[in-house]
Design a protein around this nucleic acid. Structure first.
Length: 264
DNA sequence: ATTAGGG
DNA sequence: CCCTAAT
């Protein structure tokens, strides 16, 4: 049956780029072993990485001749046909990067950092900033952007601020189509696995699906340049999918430690 | 066992 | 993607 041409998601391409940037070309095995990219590239082999890199164009900084129209993102639309009124939804996503080049993907980084830190008291701005700087290239005025974003996330109820530290608030998940994850009991291991044990592959598949959903949403948004309303909807959807991805990562951590989770 | 290159 | 030669 359909040996599906496992299409490379943007997430995978992104991971590959980052991996090459960090380790250098030809260190495919190292990239694959790196836990950062292992999550995204778990389904790929070192050879796959090499092939994909060859098909991508071997330039480390490939923006000279043919700038591919990739990841145009919603920004083009918000600055486009509209008179630039108060689009609180769309404006809130990009609000504070005047680089024009920096992607509105920082929210994901914030959750990434907070998830990794896992401090019971949360993390302050400096800790989050430090983590993100170590992980991604970031503009110099990023601290100001970060602080704005953090404040906004708190107001949105996605983060919780205690004293000077920020912590991830329990995501209420999607309001419409989420079967509600019930509860995940990790400590009380049932004597017999009568339920459905989530295997490594299941979680990875879920993560990949979510990532693909985000990618699709991004691509869709470029097509929907005319329908601003639709674009806003998709933008929000992408944001929620990022939350979902973060949640899946959480589960993946627990599974990696040999815990068994149950689906209700 | 991994990588580079041709198919 | 698969296969093969070279390290």
């Amino acid at each position: 049956m359909g040996n599906q041409k496992q299409k490379w998601t943007t997430e995978e391409e992104e991971a590959l780029r980052a991996g090459v940037a960090k380790h250098g070309t030809g260190k495919w095995k190292n990239i694959l072993k790196d836990p950062d990219f292992a999550l995204s590239l778990s389904q790929r082999s070192n050879i796959d990485l090499k092939d994909k890199w060859r098909n991508m164009g071997i330039s480390t900084a490939a923006h000279s001749s043919k700038e591919k129209i990739r990841i145009p993102r919603v920004k083009a639309i918000t600055a486009g046909p509209l008179t630039n009124g108060q689009n609180s939804a769309s404006a809130s996503l990009i609000d504070d990067d005047k680089d024009g080049k920096t992607a509105p993907r920082y929210n994901a980084m914030i959750f990434e950092a907070l998830t990794a830190i896992k401090d019971s008291n949360g993390a302050d701005i400096s800790a989050i900033l430090n983590f993100i700087e170590r992980r991604h290239e970031v503009p110099q005025n990023f601290r100001r952007s970060l602080s704005s974003k953090l404040r906004r996330l708190v107001l949105q109820g996605k983060l919780e601020k205690v004293q000077n530290c920020y912590k991830i608030k329990r995501p209420a998940m999607l309001g419409t189509k989420t079967p509600t994850p019930k509860q995940k009991d990790i400590r009380s291991r049932p004597p017999q696995n009568s339920g459905f044990a989530i295997t490594r592959e299941t979680v990875e598949e879920a993560a990949r699906t979510t990532a693909r959903k985000v990618a699709e949403a991004e691509n869709k948004s470029s097509v929907a340049a005319e329908a601003v309303r639709e674009a806003e909807r998709i933008t929000k959807m992408a944001e929620e999918n990022e939350l979902m991805l973060q949640f899946v990562k959480e589960i993946y951590d627990q599974c990696s430690r040999g815990e068994v989770l149950l689906l209700a």
